[in-house]
Amino acid sequence: MNPDILILAQETAHPSRFAEMVVEGLSLGTIYALLAVGFVIIFKATQVINFAHGALATMGAFLVASAATIIDVPGRWMPSAPDWLVWALSVLIAVIAMAGIGMLLERVFLRPMVGEELFAVAIVTLGLDIFLRNYTNDWIGPQPRPLGDPFGAEVVDLGWVSIAQTEIAQIVVALVAVGAIALFFQSRMGIAMRATAFDQEAARAQGISVGRVFSISWAIGAVLAAIAGIFISLFPRRAAGVDNTTAFFAFKAFPAIIIGGLDSVVGAIVGGLLVGFSEAAAGTYLTGVSFLGTGFAGIVPYLLMLLVLIVRPYGIFGTEEIRRV
């Protein structure tokens, strides 16, 4: 029987498929949004396109796996504590470590490049990606590493659609993270960051420690990447744990950023969700449509990106660069 007709036939028979699609879009979209927001914060503050974002995500997930299951920290010192608390502490340790790693990378590899051409700096991060990704993958080894989370494979059945606990957690965490960032931008450091993004030299002249702004922005970017990496590596998507394919997710964050505009946090969130939903919709309604072939859903974000760029070369929320001689 022709698979096209078959799948379309099931389509009409299952009204809940639309709901499924919404859940998937939200689940993918929040991951992309988390990656994209971290990316945009780094770009806004330091003018660096961070191609190593996927590697940071993998690293974050692997640190959680290490802390929670491989070396069992802090679980080994608190045997009677509830599982969820121990795991939350492991995640906290991993996230703090990632903030440190982010700062370290900025200080060692990117500070020397301040003032260089933007694309030269971008290529440094491309090199950084190759380096970090391979190094992390070597640590992970050939087998996936489970993160040891307390959610397990639990699923909440809402009647018309079922959703994994981890996906609910992910959406909640993403909302909290976005709220925290909104608050951060109101803080003293946040204002300093916005000033630096506006004009590095002027900010410096006002007594803002631009170096510190750079460090903090990389710390935030790395933490957000790590959180995204952790949720990628949990139950429904990487049920067996973090492995060497986690970094590929970051390639979908790029269209999200461009659609939203390189320097807009709001744009990153909108772009991330848009990419997630468009992928889920294309996956649900277009997979198996023979003339579209294999993997059409995967390039929908890129097509969307090209479309947006033709109409608005600086993305939906991006600011147009003023070009002077």
Partner: peptide, 12 residues
Amino acid sequence: TDEATLTAAADA
């Protein structure tokens, strides 16, 4: 390398 295809397969 394409998560969307996996999601779509699970969905189907």
